[in-house]
Design a protein around this nucleic acid. Structure first.
Lengths: 123, 123, 123, 123
DNA sequence: GTGGTCTAGACCACA
DNA sequence: GTGGTCTAGACCACG
């Protein structure tokens, strides 16, 4: 019944991202069954169609496989899961570096800025 | 006639971000006049309405000021420009940290990951 | 334990097609007994219900006959088997011609395209 | 107001296939604007959502590009269009050959069968 | 029970 | 005006 979605990104993408994170973090294992579309819809407090779209998108990306009449499962292709983790990570770093570069930061300043951020965080 | 916009973000935001970056990097100085809406529209290859919206948005954030009949100018309030730089930077780092945390990375791993990224970049 | 089904077509149809092909190719003869539903299900790695449906469908088409308590058999009506071959073949060619026509190919170009395809295959 | 869809394939795919054919046949040129979602929906006698899905699918395949607030256009990347034609053609021939092979036909028999089919057609 | 498709109707941001 | 997303509710084929 979690209903804390951002307004900027489509909900179906946010849910897909969240599930991908769970898989990458190992909270969901290869071959494990995802909740059914309807179940997930209730849990997330959204319409089943929205979950359907989430699952379709994830299947298109090869993260998930659907077995007819049985449900949707995390792919058993471990290679894909490894790539997924790397891909997600690289995308995030890419965006970060590009944005910081646009602001005129050098690579050293980026690392420095990040460390300062954490130091401030601890206080 | 630059026409390389992403599909995910609104064009007017992308242009605003680009202008903000220029200002933060010092390529545009406090008090400097921005191109007219029409001129900017032609240069960017977009609808003048879109530029209008960009300028409105930037004015709302206090980055630029519109002087009637004269045009749009970078604010002369240096304080605002300093804050702008910090604000943009913090937003970027915030997003980065949150995304990486979602993937299960610790603070140390984030710094490490970033440095690895740069090392790979140099090769 | 063959488990290489397409996602687009129903599994029970794919199995029916496969069996029909075997019959048409002469690998299964008129009057020959098909594997039992359970046996076939295990061999194919699918639910017995699915095989049941396959057999029902094939019986509906007159390709097989069910003898109570004895099992399912390829029909002994040779006429039906002849027609089956022609029917299957015509369906395939029909689909091919219609699809190619949709792409703007003339009859000559279809034959030509097919021959080119084989030539490329041999290299 | 054409409403002659097969029951076997999803409507949104059938429409996508039809549009692709038109593009491949040259009836729609690179850069040409497609009807708006709503317009197309009325013309086809289906729900706008269905057309939306058609366009999304085609964009995913690179056949079509959407410009924000302006509409959906045939891609101007001629290379993609060439590949599309080849790809569609090869898929059709592939399916044909595989199906015929399953029935036990040799390559020569396939060509022969096709030519006979056309001869019968002319009578 | 499962996922897949479709409709009807609505709202939104963007140009 | 455009496309994009979402809801509500329905029906279907499949296993």
């Amino acid at each position: 019944m979690t209903k804390d979605f951002q307004t900027s990104k489509p909900i179906y993408i946010q849910i897909a991202d969240h599930l991908s994170s769970q898989i990458v973090r190992g909270e969901m294992r290869a071959g494990e069954k995802l909740p059914s579309v309807r179940e997930m819809a209730i849990n997330s407090g959204v319409n089943p169609n929205t979950i359907q779209r989430t699952y379709s998108e994830m299947e298109r990306m090869g993260i998930v496989e659907t077995k007819r009449g049985q449900g949707t499962f995390v792919t058993e292709n471990e290679q894909v899961l490894k790539e997924l983790k790397i891909c997600l990570q690289t995308d995030i770093i890419d965006a970060f570096v590009q944005n910081m570069k646009e602001l005129g930061f050098s690579q050293e300043e980026m690392v420095e800025g990040l460390e300062q951020y954490f130091r401030r965080d601890q206080e």
